[in-house]
Simulated assay, not measured.
Amino acid sequence: MRLLLFKVLLMILPSGLISEEKDYIREYYGNGTLMAEGWKEGNVKEDYWYYYFPDGKIQKKGAYKNNRQNGYWYFYTPQGKLLREGHFIKGKKNGWWKEYESTYVRELKYNDGKREGFALIYMKGDLKKVEKYSNDIKMGEWTSLLGFKRDNPNVKF
């Protein structure tokens, strides 16, 4: 793996001059194709990063804070289709995520890296199935909206 490095020096603060170095890193596969690129402060990944498959297509992209995935990320298949997207907080999945499969789209919620709450499965834009998770364990599944409403009368969506 080869590295290419660009240095940026920041020096403006209201309290006086303080220098902070940020490096823009490019990492390459053995064949010379770009593998990843993004910002580092010292050895710590910060800000936006891009990762590529060996053929040069985008694999994933998103931001880091303190060497951990943080913020909204996108993940792609080797064919270039969006595979999943969602939020990270301190390196763990949090909030709503979307997963794209060939025949359906799943929207599910994560809390501290674990599936939590309801997962909604859509086929061609229509809700077809609902799953319920607690602490990353599947607690139930409904393929009938009537059955779901009967078992979960207080849930509105």
Rank of each mutant, 00 (worst) to 15 (best):
F6N: 09
F6D: 05
F6G: 12
K7M: 07
K7T: 12
V8W: 07
L9G: 07
L9F: 00
L10D: 14
M11L: 06
M11D: 13
M11H: 12
P14F: 00
P14G: 02
S15V: 11
S15Q: 13
G16H: 08
G16F: 12
L17H: 09
I18G: 13
S19M: 12
E21Q: 14
E21W: 12
K22N: 05
Y24C: 05
I25V: 15
I25F: 12
I25R: 15
R26S: 15
E27Q: 13
E27A: 14
Y28V: 07
Y29N: 04
G30M: 02
N31L: 07
N31D: 10
N31V: 00
N31I: 01
G32F: 01
G32D: 03
G32N: 05
G32L: 01
T33C: 10
T33P: 06
M35Y: 14
E37M: 11
E37Q: 15
E37A: 14
G38F: 10
W39H: 06
G42K: 13
N43R: 10
V44N: 09
V44G: 04
K45T: 02
Y48E: 13
W49R: 09
W49M: 00
Y50T: 03
Y51R: 08
Y51I: 00
Y52A: 08
P54C: 01
D55C: 13
D55H: 04
D55M: 11
G56D: 10
G56H: 09
K57G: 14
Q59K: 12
K61G: 01
G62Q: 03
A63M: 03
K65S: 14
N66H: 10
N66Q: 08
N67H: 07
N67T: 05
N67W: 09
N67E: 10
R68W: 08
G71K: 04
G71I: 04
Y72M: 12
W73V: 01
W73R: 13
W73C: 05
Y74C: 12
Y74T: 06
F75P: 00
Y76F: 11
T77G: 01
T77L: 06
P78M: 03
P78C: 05
G80K: 02
K81I: 08
K81V: 03
L82W: 02
L82F: 00
L82P: 04
L83C: 07
L83T: 01
L83Y: 11
R84H: 03
G86C: 15
I89K: 14
I89Q: 05
K90N: 10
K90D: 06
K92T: 04
K93F: 04
G95Q: 00
W96H: 03
W96S: 11
W97V: 02
E99L: 05
Y100R: 07
E101K: 15
T103P: 03
V105L: 10
E107A: 09
E107N: 04
L108G: 06
K109T: 06
